[in-house]
Amino acid sequence: MKLCDFVVADAIVPDLTAGNKEAAIREMVASLRQSGSVKAEDEDGIVAAILKREELGSTGIGNGVAVPHTKHASVDKLVATVALAREGVDFASLDGEPVFILFLLVSPPDRPGDHLRGLENISRHLRNQSFCKFLRQSKDKSAILELLQEADNNEL
């Protein structure tokens, strides 16, 4: 599974405006909705599910990265989006530092395999310092998308 298989290109948020955790999650899910990947009536439910998961332990895993995620019956395949927060968002991360890179995943509950493949894939790339650095330097959607493709092709 490749990043570009599940990251919805139209839903990428190159400049997250939200200033806190909940708003950041809300903004990313809204972007998924605008791209047609989640339905308007499910938006609140998805946000609530992601926030509930965050209560069990922040998905801000350090290095300025967070991977909020949830399972939700309203989607029929794994969808994800990437957002860059230029000023950083307080995500109650384990290291207490703000996050700048966010990957948000929503997956159907009956396909746990895809969900895990997605998480594995993201965590592998996030361990690559160049990937994180170049991602933060990307100015717009197309630059981010290009970087994701390069990562998929192991060109970094």
């Binding site: 509930k52 998961r53 069990l56 332990g57 998905t59 895993i61 350090g62 290095n63 991977v67 995620h69 384990l94 290291d95 998480l119 965590s123 996030l126 361990r127």
Partner: peptide, 17 residues
């Protein structure tokens, strides 16, 4: 690395959920 530990802990959180 710390990141590794945190990722593992995050997965533990998923399992709890």
């Amino acid at each position: 690395t710390l990141m590794e530990f945190r990722q593992a802990r995050m997965i533990l959180g998923d399992v709890v959920e």
